[in-house]
């Protein structure tokens, strides 16, 4: 059974038809990378999966559960999905440790000490051991984003959504964040990520989805998409993004 399954998902903002029938699956331990031009619907796709945006048609299944049903408890669904944002969105009034353990303590009912131990273990592992009691504003962008990733994975979500998590970072800091994502893949995390880092996408993705005009126009392994793209739009996009 797939962790995530999208079936003919549509989303409109007024007259703007952003998602035009998206079909997509993400299997367990799979890393699917979504690429495409700005405005192709990547971010909207992420937000519909997380139920921040309500779909206007179609269904989304999370481990077989239809999460687009009106009766579904959105908070319970969101608790099963980890999200990392482009701009980190850490809570500036909380220390790193409180940011990271918030969901465990308040949503999952984990004992505060247990959550704390687990958080410190993960922060240590990702080189943030000394930042546990700092406030986020004292951290560099790369450190903040790594904290945000730890926050998203602390409760072992079924699915991780990474929405252009390196786009707001200094090129010097991109590497440390992407290394962390590689670690997560090695551990078997199931991930759906949108990115503009093509070389990273090529190295980490099991499958690449090229979004164009609100639809996955071409899907394939990195070798297929980057080496032998079938659609003219894919070729044009890749030519533009690699030659700038």
């Amino acid at each position: 059974m797939s962790v995530l399954e999208l079936d003919n998902v549509h989303k409109l903002f007024g007259d703007n038809h952003v998602l035009r029938g998206v079909d997509l699956t993400v299997d367990e331990h799979e890393v699917v990378v979504v690429i495409g031009a700005s405005g192709s619907g990547k971010s909207t796709l992420m937000r519909t999966i997380n139920l921040i945006e309500r779909v206007d048609d179609g269904r989304i299944l999370l481990s077989g559960d239809d999460i687009t049903e009106p009766t579904v408890d959105v908070d319970k669904v969101r608790a099963r999905i980890g999200v990392v944002f482009q701009h980190f969105n850490l809570f500036p009034h909380m220390r790193v440790i409180d940011n990271v353990t918030l969901a465990a303590r308040k949503v999952h009912g984990t004992d505060a000490d247990v959550a704390r131990d687990r958080a410190i273990g993960l922060l240590d592992k990702f080189g943030l051991g000394e930042k546990v009691d700092d406030y986020p504003d004292r951290l560099s962008g790369g450190q903040q984003q790594r904290v945000a990733i730890v926050r998203a994975i602390l409760t072992d979500p079924e699915l991780l959504l990474l929405d252009e998590i390196t786009s707001a970072l200094d090129p010097m800091l991109v590497g440390e964040v992407l290394d962390l994502v590689r670690d997560l893949k090695a551990q078997g995390s199931t991930m759906l990520m949108a990115t503009h880092e093509m070389s990273f996408a090529a190295s980490v993705a099991d499958r690449i989805v090229f979004m164009h005009a609100g639809r996955p126009l071409e899907v394939g392994t990195p070798d297929q998409i980057f080496g032998d793209p079938q659609q003219p739009e894919t070729r044009e996009f890749l030519a533009r993004i690699t030659h700038r």
Binding site: N50, I52, D75, K76, R78, A79, R80, I81, V83, F85, H87, N89, L90, F91, L102, A103, K106, V107, H108, R151
Partner: peptide, 16 residues
Amino acid sequence: PSQRIAARSLGLSHAQ
């Protein structure tokens, strides 16, 4: 608003 979205994405309720 991104603060609300981040909080809700963690599964926190509106009141939380």
